[in-house]
Design a protein around this nucleic acid. Structure first.
Length: 304
DNA sequence: AACTCGTGGTC
DNA sequence: TGACCAAGAGT
């Protein structure tokens, strides 16, 4: 059992050193999340992935349960008006995700016989499913071998392998290549690795205060070995919110979500006093299909 | 490639 | 206390 690996510094040599401790740590520390239960099924996994885009687990949990109880299959959601999806989205944020999830459900019902597709390319073709979500559903729901590159995995790889505190602002070709190189060969192990690295980033190798004392690969971590140097490079990103169109859109949509009939213009005008920005925000909501204009200067969530 | 798109919790 | 952060996608 002392088959010494080739004395190379390639990723293939590193990969074996990381897989076992990370997966063992996951076996012992994985959170018991409902979309990880077998009964969640591929549809449950897909719903959770839409909700988790840019949104913390703690806020997703109650919404996830409500959605799956109300719409246990894609066809159930597809049978309802898109506005019902937007309303049920509540305050999860980025309500266009609700619209896209509804559209994805409709596509699944029409093109895939009501079953979430297993093929990566078919997943990617669904509304609201990008590189990350396609890989996540294929991996978590179907056990396939894909590089799953979310913000957690990117941070773990940036630190453990590349030796920097934070990954680049946008996913790079180098990150994709690295993630592919590190993927275990065996399909079920690769799927386990994907979930494990994500969980490690979420629970231990966090953005602000990583708990390296609890990290199963601290001894292998290139960033630690370099003395945990502070991030150098462009600022991570400015994400101001107060006073933006997004805030206005949020206030407008909140009124429409609460209403169950047509909402008169005056009710919308009350949420923001700057008329130019208010009109721009409302136009944007209509253009996105989140709001439907009616006769007589009133609005509602979309029925079609 | 850079920008937009919600909301709430944290330090 | 305001800046940062949270399982991204679409343009």
């Amino acid at each position: 059992m002392t088959t010494t690996p080739a004395p190379s510094t390639t990723a293939q040599a590193r990969t074996h050193a990381l897989h076992t401790p990370v997966i063992a740590w996951f076996d012992a520390n994985a959170r018991d999340l409902p979309w990880r239960h077998p009964e969640a099924g591929p549809w449950g996994v897909m719903v959770s992935e839409f909700m988790l885009q840019q949104t913390p687990v703690s806020r997703v949990l109650p919404m996830y349960e409500q959605w799956l109880a109300r719409w246990p299959r894609p066809a159930d959601l597809a049978a309802e008006p898109p506005g019902e999806a937007v309303r049920a989205w509540g305050r999860l944020g980025y309500p266009r995700r609700a619209l896209r999830l509804h559209a994805a459900a409709a596509a699944i019902a029409e093109r895939h016989g009501g079953e979430v597709p297993t093929d990566h390319a078919e997943l990617l073709a669904l509304p609201g499913v990008g590189e990350y979500t396609a890989a996540a559903v294929a991996s978590f729901a179907y056990g396939q071998r894909h590089a799953v590159l979310d913000t957690n995995v990117r941070r773990v790889l940036a630190r453990a392998v590349t030796g920097v505190q934070y990954p680049p602002n946008a996913t790079t070709a180098a990150e994709r290549r690295l993630a592919r190189e590190l993927l275990p060969d065996a399909e079920p192990v690769a799927a386990r690795w994907a979930a494990a690295t994500m969980e490690l980033g979420a629970l231990v190798c966090t953005a602000r205060a990583p708990e390296c004392g609890r990290c199963p690969i601290a001894a292998h971590c290139a960033w630690r070995a370099a003395g945990s140097p502070a991030h150098d490079g462009p600022p991570r990103r400015g994400q101001t919110y107060a006073g933006t169109d997004r805030q206005v859109r949020g206030k407008l949509l909140a009124v429409l979500r609460e209403a169950h009939g047509p909402v008169p213009q005056a009710a919308l005008d009350a949420v923001w006093d700057e008329p130019v920005q208010r009109a721009r925000a409302l136009d944007g909501l209509v253009a996105d299909g989140l709001v439907e204009p009616l006769e007589g200067a009133s609005y509602r969530l979309p029925l079609t």
